[in-house]
């Protein structure tokens, strides 16, 4: 078998607070092949965001190892080297633009931080702006453009240094339903064209089924893997699939995995 692009090997994360230790993720394992689009689905507090933060070197692991391209990337209390971080782009739940930079400067920020210089990189910024229709807003400040535009900027900022992996932490959760559907379709379009490996975190079952090839379902107390569901739906996916019997079948299966948790109450 081909070596997985990303591998979690029995990863556990314990957060130490002053009064107690909280088991955020317990014994989590998964393997993701290059170019796959997978979702991690679960209610609030199941540790799904913690997972990709460990992968992207924002927080360290307590036990277990994480591999990218077969290379161990996590070391306790040590920063992940930029050579590994460069392989990943992180998309936050909020646009997370820095308000003192223009849209273009924000998108080019990873280039400055990773020290990627040269006309080819600058050209890439312009191409990405073009890709999501932000060219005419390049010189605007984040406070001057809409939420949908800001989140698009967030997506292309994560792509500007040409990472192989995109980590998306409920990226469109803060957007209205219509914009969210549109963004999902744009994301699928980007994925089809670039063949990046995508880990998509969500608490929305429909979104998970619509986008991904496989869904990892997580449960709470402690955060752990409950079920892996492979989705055998044709691509390209369209919004009209939502009403097809097979789609509904998968949706109900996932609802069953998550159990009695009332998702409508979880933001």
């Amino acid at each position: 078998m081909q070596e997985p692009k990303i591998k979690f090997d029995h990863v556990t994360k314990v957060f130490q607070t002053r009064s107690q230790s909280i088991l955020a993720v317990k014994d989590y394992s998964m393997e993701i092949a290059a170019g796959e689009f997978v979702s991690i689905l679960g209610p609030s507090g199941c540790g799904k965001s913690t997972l990709i933060r460990m992968l992207d070197g924002i927080i360290d692991t307590t036990e277990g190892d994480i591999f990218i391209d077969g290379q161990k990337v996590n070391y306790a209390k040590k920063k992940m080297p930029q050579s590994i971080l460069r392989k990943m782009g992180f998309i936050f739940q909020q646009p997370n633009m820095l308000p003192w930079f223009t849209v273009r400067e924000n998108i080019a920020l990873p280039l400055r931080v990773f020290d990627l210089k040269g006309p080819e990189w600058e050209k890439r910024v312009d191409e990405l702006l073009e890709l999501v229709g932000l060219t005419e807003y390049a010189k605007a400040y984040p406070a001057e453009i809409s939420g949908g535009m800001l989140q698009r900027a967030g997506v292309i900022r994560a792509m500007v240094h040409d990472p192989e992996i995109l980590l998306m932490d409920e990226p469109f959760g803060a957007l209205d339903e219509l914009t969210r559907e549109q963004m999902n379709m744009e994301l699928l379009d980007i994925w089809t064209r670039t063949k990046k490996t995508i880990i998509f975190i969500t608490h929305n079952i429909e979104e998970a089924v619509l986008l991904s090839s496989r869904v990892y379902v997580m449960g709470t107390h402690p955060g752990r893997l409950v079920e892996i569901v492979d989705l055998d739906l044709p691509r390209p996916r369209t919004l009209s699939m939502i009403t097809q019997p097979k789609f509904i079948q998968y949706r109900e299966k996932l609802e069953g995995c998550i159990g009695e948790i009332d998702l409508s109450k979880i933001k």
Partner: peptide, 27 residues
């Protein structure tokens, strides 16, 4: 926190983090 995480996700060194993010955030 989310701004700190942004800089961490890129492995930004302390000086870049300070000049590009921390200082303007506190301005």
């Amino acid at each position: 926190t989310i701004r700190r995480e942004l800089m961490q996700s890129m492995g930004a060194d302390p000086i870049k983090t300070y000049l590009k993010m921390t200082l303007p955030s506190a301005a």
